[in-house]
Amino acid sequence: MTNDQDLTQLMRDNMGALNIRMGVELVEVSPERVVGTMPVEGNTQPYGLLHGGASVVLAETLGSVAAALNAGPDRFAVGIDINATHHRSARQGLVTGVATPLHVGRTMSSFEIVLTDEDGKRVCTSRITCAVLDRDPGPKASA
């Protein structure tokens, strides 16, 4: 297994409580493209429409996974900015998000995440920017 495969499996196995509660599933994971789905049911606002915050949760998850994959094994990514434009509502079924890189640099990366409904219509466009940091090497051995 490569480092990317290890990281991909770790992410799929450890989605976190919020993603589990919201039904987020990773479908395709690579540094160039991360795809995930989320059900509309259970993630709606009082009018029965997909909650905008739920769209942002899916977008941030996919963008963060993409940033982590691009950061490399000795680095990690933390989100520092996210925005979303909600184009149309979804009332049922699954929404699918696709995260693709806009910029992958040594200290910062940005990704566009497009969410679509089951008819392929764009529901939301989001952009996330992540800082890429060195992992703490841990305590230094005393001389």
Results as ranks from 00 to 15, higher is better:
Val56His: 02
Gly16Val: 13
Met1Thr: 12
Asn70Trp: 05
Thr8Arg: 12
Lys121Pro: 01
Val56Phe: 13
Asp134Val: 12
Ala17Ser: 11
Gly42Phe: 01
Ile80Gln: 14
Glu112Ile: 12
Gln92Thr: 13
Ile82Gln: 01
Arg127Asn: 03
Val27Leu: 10
Val114Arg: 06
Ile128Tyr: 01
Ala66Cys: 10
Gly53His: 01
Gly36Tyr: 06
Asp81Pro: 02
Gly105Gln: 12
Thr116Arg: 10
Val24Trp: 06
Met22Gly: 01
Asp4Cys: 05
Asn70Pro: 09
Val56Trp: 05
Arg21Gly: 08
Asn43Leu: 07
Val114Thr: 14
Ala141Pro: 01
Leu69Lys: 03
His103Gln: 14
Val34Lys: 03
Gly52Lys: 02
Asp136Trp: 10
Cys130Trp: 07
Ser64Glu: 13
Ile80Asp: 08
Glu112Phe: 00
Thr107Ile: 09
Arg122Glu: 14
Ser55Phe: 00
Thr129Gln: 05
Gly72Ile: 14
Asp119Ser: 14
Met1Cys: 07
Pro101Ile: 09
Glu60His: 10
Thr125Arg: 04
Arg106Asn: 13
Gly23Asp: 04
Ala99Phe: 03
Thr2Ala: 06
Thr2Lys: 06
Thr96His: 01
Glu41Lys: 11
Ser89Glu: 12
Thr107His: 13
Thr37Met: 00
Thr85Glu: 06
Arg12Cys: 15
Ala143Lys: 07
Ser110Ile: 10
Asp136Leu: 02
Leu18Arg: 03
Gln45Asp: 08
Thr61Lys: 11
Ser89Tyr: 02
Glu112Cys: 03
Ala99His: 08
Ala66Pro: 09
Ser126Lys: 01
Ile20Val: 15
Asn19His: 12
Val56Met: 14
Gly105Val: 07
Ala77Trp: 11
Leu69Ile: 13
Asn3Asp: 15
Ser30Leu: 05
Pro31Cys: 08
Gln45Pro: 00
Arg12Ile: 15
Gly48Asn: 06
Arg91Gly: 10
Ile80Met: 15
Val78His: 08
Gln92Cys: 00
Val65Met: 07
Glu41Pro: 02
Thr96Pro: 04
His87Trp: 09
Asn43Val: 03
Gly52Phe: 01
Met108Cys: 09
Phe76Arg: 10
Val40Lys: 02
Thr129Val: 15
Arg122Thr: 15
Ile82Arg: 00
Met22Ile: 09
Asp119Tyr: 00
Val95Arg: 00
Gly97Lys: 03
Glu118Leu: 04
Asp117Arg: 02
Pro139His: 11
Glu60Asp: 14
Arg106Cys: 06
Arg135Met: 13
Tyr47Phe: 14
Asp6Ala: 15
Asp134Ile: 11
Thr129Arg: 01
Ser142Trp: 03
Ala59Asn: 06
Pro31Trp: 08
Ala77Ser: 14
Gly97Glu: 05
Ala84Gln: 09
Gln45Trp: 02
Val29Thr: 10
Val65Asp: 07
Glu28Cys: 06
Asn14Lys: 10
Leu94Arg: 06
Glu112Asn: 09
Glu60Cys: 11
Tyr47Arg: 08
Arg91Asp: 05
Thr107Leu: 13
Leu26Trp: 10
